[in-house]
């Protein structure tokens, strides 16, 4: 083992590194932003990190914070129950687009409407990655997946879910809603930090969707991966703050 470790957030759990995500995956970038935000807010000891099933699961021991697992789509109610039971905790749910927008959509929608004081971070990589690259609610029109081998046909599979836009519509004031991208790290970290602050201040529901990469299932090389993220995804899914109690949204 090398004696020199690369710099990592204090709230990362060193024994679980190097992490288990594929080369080129965006999860590590999102989790780095989250780790730095936890450090800067000094909330490592009161944070509880809950992860969904899917690739998000691979983060279950990523942090040196108390962490828990559940079933596919059920991270939201577990974190809601925890927060309701002990409001002193900072409850962070971490999930993919399938867990949040499909199997767990009723939980996401209703917790947002109830303005639950939890922070949810949803990674949008346009497919069900852990199960082998099937159609996700966020798969782009025409995009090929294992269950749409000829491309997503919007007549048959509908249009991609624009989650933050929906959440912004159904949440009351006090909610924080943003879409970030792993291609803009500093902005993403700002959004995540605000989503944590919003919970700490007890303002309301806090939600950040992070556009992310999945070269394994996209079957793309680094150049193609980045092109798909910046050219295709970011043009379909507008990046920025949609709703913020902290003043005018940053675009």
């Amino acid at each position: 083992m090398s004696a020199v470790q690369p710099a990592m957030p204090k709230s990362w759990y060193a024994p679980s590194k190097p992490h288990k995500f594929c080369p080129g995956c965006g999860h590590g970038i999102v989790l780095k932003a989250l780790g730095e935000a936890i450090d800067e807010l000094n909330i490592q000891n009161q944070t509880v990190f809950g992860c969904d099933i899917g690739c998000s699961l691979l983060s279950w021991n990523f942090f040196a914070v108390d962490s828990t697992q559940t079933h596919h789509g059920r991270t939201t109610p577990v974190m809601v129950g925890m927060k309701r039971a002990n409001p002193e905790l900072i409850c962070v749910g971490y999930m993919g687009d399938g867990g949040g927008y499909s199997i767990g959509s009723q939980h996401l929608v209703n917790s947002a409407i109830r303005n639950e004081k939890v922070t949810l971070i949803l990674v949008n990589n346009t497919n069900y990655a852990m199960t082998g690259g099937q159609l996700a609610p966020t798969t782009l029109p025409g995009q090929k997946t294992e269950t749409t081998p000829y491309g997503r046909d919007v007549e048959k599979q509908g249009y991609p879910t624009r989650g933050p836009e929906m959440i912004a519509t159904i949440t009351p004031d006090g909610a924080y809603v943003a879409r970030a991208t792993v291609s803009k790290f500093r902005q993403m970290k700002t959004f995540i930090k605000r989503a944590l602050q919003n919970q700490m201040e007890g303002n309301g529901f806090s939600f950040v969707e992070c556009l992310s990469t999945c070269p394994t299932n996209w079957r793309t090389n680094p150049q193609q991966t980045w092109d798909f993220l910046e050219d295709q995804m970011e043009s379909y899914f507008a990046v920025g703050e949609i709703k913020s109690p902290f003043g005018k949204g940053e675009k």
Binding site: T68, P77, V78, G81, V109
Partner: peptide, 23 residues
Amino acid sequence: EFLQTEDEISAGFTVCGAVQAGR
């Protein structure tokens, strides 16, 4: 406290979350 959840799945999982928090 009480929370009426969106369905029974959620009612069960919120209970799972709450007991982890020690309540």
